[in-house]
Write a protein that binds this DNA or RNA. Structure first.
Length: 425
DNA sequence: TCTGGGGTCCTAGGACCC
DNA sequence: TCTGGGGTCCTAGGACCC
């Protein structure tokens, strides 16, 4: 039995994950600056260490750094989530060989409870795990070890910043020195706004935060900030979540590659998002009770006329049927659409999700429901076996409005037979 | 010219009720 | 002039995460 005194968490985090994935099948990218772009090749969402050192910032629009790219021969890639998702799965599989208690926290991070390793040298075990992940997947990772998730995160940050740690750091018996080395804004749970506020009241490092009275933190910020500070003191507030809670909302949206000015294009985009959202619902065996539709013009261009529209409707009975959601979404959107605007983004948001069977309403005939269900099964089966979008509703259209601009995507090496890496003799 | 796409939780304040 | 008080529910907005 492991008591609270001896409990330990590790956080394993892939280094520059997307950039590292790009390098696996293209070793010549090693030691070169690499940046990966968001959908539509809009802004930078990942950078290799070399690109960070040059000064590329997270979230920066790529058109603003064309000069920097040219001057430094930076490799620019569109995002390739098929590849990243598959590499992530391989990394997580490897991690699970070292401990059964793993919470996959994001595509490139996992918390690990080290209960099973009590009595052994945690650091040594984690170094073994790190070596295995690197050897079997090609992805370099960093690992932090501490009594709470927040401390494990902090140790991980320290390991990344401090090359002498060689990728693994553990919170020492007396953590003061390490806490002083981490800025308040680099603590997990303390973002831009709060770190500004903390600095204004003289709190600059994790060490300073630990000195603060918890009640004062809660009063000045909120209960989450207080819990974060308590976790830094070694008190557990955030537990390992191995079986994720059922999701509460589901959003499908995207920016347009080119501005949209016609109802035809806008309606096709909304129908496509509705389709993707409904598929995801069925995939997770959920139904939605509330549907929200939105679209708006550019948030950045203040010269052109601006318009932001959104509307919500209750779905009675709750549903995950594609054509019902398309119909309701278009019904909501059409009266809001206005001629003369250049729309940049649209989306479909589903809320109040619940498990399983939709309730039957008074006006809902059982035959109709059965038919819908059968139709969705056929649709999903066809699209699963023959490729997404093989069979779709006419409302989603045949124009190219939903096509992403992805000029520099690498091949999907591990998930498409026709894109397998080739070895030439 | 060109600025991602998802999620969660908390709080304040208004509506409404008795 | 003075204009109750307390409770719940809901929503929008703001903070955070990746």
């Amino acid at each position: 039995m492991v008591d609270a005194q001896t409990r330990m968490y590790a956080l394993a985090d892939c280094n520059n994950f997307y950039a590292s994935c790009e390098r696996i099948f293209e070793p010549h990218l090693a030691r070169k600056p690499v940046v990966v772009l968001s959908n539509n090749d809009g802004c930078i969402i990942a950078r290799s260490q070399e690109a960070k050192d040059i000064g590329f910032k997270m979230g920066e629009p790529i058109f603003k750094c064309r000069d920097l790219v040219k001057q430094n021969n930076v490799i620019v890639r569109s995002s390739n989530f098929s590849l990243y998702g598959d590499m992530s799965r391989r990394v997580m599989q490897t991690i699970r060989l070292f401990s059964p208690d793993v919470e996959v926290y994001s595509i490139d991070e996992a918390f690990i409870k080290l209960d099973g390793l009590v009595g052994r040298d945690f650091e040594q075990e984690m170094r073994r795990m790190r070596a295995a992940v690197l050897q079997w997947t090609g992805i370099p990772i960093s690992i932090g070890i501490g009594k709470t998730k927040t401390l494990a995160k902090l140790a991980n940050h320290y390991a990344k910043k401090t090359p002498e740690m060689e990728g693994v750091a553990k919170i020492p018996q007396n953590p003061d020195e390490m806490l002083r080395a981490v800025e308040v804004g680099d603590i997990w749970g303390i973002g831009r706004q709060w770190s500004k506020k903390f600095r204004n009241i003289g709190v600059h490092t994790a060490f300073d935060l630990v000195q603060m009275e918890p009640a004062v933190i809660q009063q000045t910020f909120n209960i989450v900030a207080m819990k974060t500070a308590m976790e830094l003191r070694g008190c557990t507030y955030f537990r390992l979540e191995q079986s994720p809670e059922q999701r509460k909302t589901l959003l499908r949206s995207r920016s347009f590659a080119k501005p949209v000015t016609t109802w035809q294009e806008l309606s096709e985009a909304i129908a496509s998002h509705a389709t993707r959202a409904a598929e995801k619902l069925r995939n997770e065996e959920l139904v939605a009770s509330v549907l929200k539709v939105f679209f708006h013009t550019s948030l950045f261009n203040h010269q052109k006329p601006r318009h932001s529209a959104h509307a919500t409707i209750e779905l009675i009975p709750p549903t995950n049927t594609t054509h019902t959601i398309i119909k309701e979404a278009l019904h909501l959107a059409e009266p809001m659409w206005k001629v003369g605007f250049e729309y940049k983004r649209a989306g479909v948001y589903l809320l109040e999700l619940s498990k399983g069977q939709a309730q039957t309403s008074l006006f809902d005939s059982p035959e109709r429901k059965k038919l819908d269900k059968q139709m969705m099964s056929v649709l999903d089966a066809v699209n699963t076996s023959m490729g997404a979008g093989t069979m779709h509703f006419a409302a989603t259209g045949f124009t190219k409005v939903m096509q992403m601009r992805q000029l520099q995507r690498s091949p999907r090496y591990t998930t498409r037979w026709d894109e397998l890496p080739q070895v030439r003799a």
